[in-house]
Simulated assay, not measured.
Amino acid sequence: MEWLETYSLDLWILATASLVAASCALVGVFLILRRQALMGDAISHSVLLGIVLAYLISGTNSLWVMLLGAVIIGLVTAWLSETLHKVSRLQSDASIGIVFTLFFSIGVILVSLYTGQVDLDQECVLYGEIAFVPFDTIIWGDMETGTELGPRAFWLILFVFTIVVSSIILGFERFKTVTFHPSLAISLGISVTFWHYFLMTLVSMTTVASFDAVGAILVVALLIIPAATAYLLAKSLKGMLWVALAYSQASVWLGYAIAAWLNSSISASIAVSAGLLMITTLMILQIQKWQQKRYYAHRLNSGQTNS
């Protein structure tokens, strides 16, 4: 039965990684369209400060307390970045870079100072280790005789994924209007500010739910790369969401296969796979563009010859 147990562990890892990738890809689409890809990077790093502060203030490492702390710091990051951009001559990306590096550095300092109390370390923050996800489980009932429900990280990201999907479905038209036509949204009475910070809340929740399992580096990769690849291919917002989902899942499965083959980090392999898929897509698009130019040039030459 050892092979069955190993197979079960692999399934939990793949299921968790798939949900992380799907959640990141969906919110990443709106970040890419709003030209705020760096904001995803900022929030994915600055939430460390929220996690540590939530623990130090509450004295508990409850997932819901840390989730609340991360969401608050994520919103503060977005607000402070915009405020710094508006009141100074700094470019938007410079403002974001200043805020998130400051918050992330403070978070790392607090982790190093209270490393004996906070169940985090710098390597966990940056890289994560999704291979350990199946061993941190939720038990229903007594610790010894209770029913094991599966990995804690899986249920947390499933909860967040459900919120993300529900929010996008219910608020699709408003997200679409605010993203593509903010002036029209204002004239229709739609609060651009509310939907902006609602998106930042979804990004923060997705980030902290993915944080412990896969680390900040993979979160950033999954927030940006599948959505950016979908941007190259899709003709509509719905199409972009579906293409981003497909690329995110392909990255997970290909990355897991590469990690098993090379016996390497799963998170890093998934990030590399996402990059390879994007590069492959770019190459195919360039080849198609070159073939089209060649075809039209051939038709033009043929027409000139016939005339």
Rank of each mutant, 00 (worst) to 15 (best):
L232R: 15
W242I: 13
L218W: 00
S210Y: 01
T177G: 08
A227D: 02
L232W: 00
T201N: 09
V178W: 02
A221G: 04
H181T: 10
K235C: 05
A216W: 00
A185Y: 01
M200P: 01
L199G: 04
T201P: 05
K238I: 00
F172Y: 15
I225Y: 01
A230M: 06
A216V: 13
S204E: 02
T229S: 13
Y247A: 11
L233T: 00
S183D: 15
V220E: 05
R174S: 09
S204A: 15
G171H: 07
L199W: 00
L184D: 07
P182D: 07
K238L: 10
F180S: 12
M240Q: 14
G239T: 05
S167A: 15
L202R: 08
K235R: 15
A246V: 12
Y231P: 03
S187K: 12
S167T: 10
A213N: 06
M240L: 11
T206S: 15
L223H: 05
E173A: 13
L170T: 06
A185P: 08
I224K: 06
S204I: 02
L232S: 12
I190K: 11
F211K: 06
Y231V: 00
V214Q: 08
Y247H: 08
K238H: 11
F194S: 13
L170M: 10
T229Y: 05
L202V: 01
S183R: 14
I168E: 03
L188M: 13
A234F: 00
L233N: 07
I217S: 04
P182R: 08
L218C: 04
G239R: 10
K235G: 08
S210H: 03
A246N: 04
T207P: 02
M200I: 05
W242V: 11
A246R: 07
T193L: 14
A221D: 01
W242Y: 14
L184V: 12
V220K: 05
I169Q: 08
A230L: 09
S167K: 08
V165A: 12
L232P: 02
I186E: 15
M240G: 13
L232Q: 14
I217Y: 02
P182M: 11
S248T: 00
W195M: 07
S191V: 02
F194M: 14
G215K: 01
F194G: 09
V192L: 09
T206C: 13
A230R: 09
L233C: 09
T207K: 06
G215V: 00
D212R: 14
A244F: 02
F211N: 06
K238M: 12
E173T: 10
F172C: 11
V208Q: 05
T206F: 05
T206Y: 01
L199N: 05
I225R: 06
F198C: 12
G215M: 08
S166F: 09
V220R: 03
G171M: 12
L170I: 11
L184P: 03
Y197R: 11
I186N: 11
A244I: 01
L199E: 04
H181W: 10
Y231F: 14
V219G: 03
R174K: 15
I168C: 09
S187D: 07
P182A: 10
S236G: 11
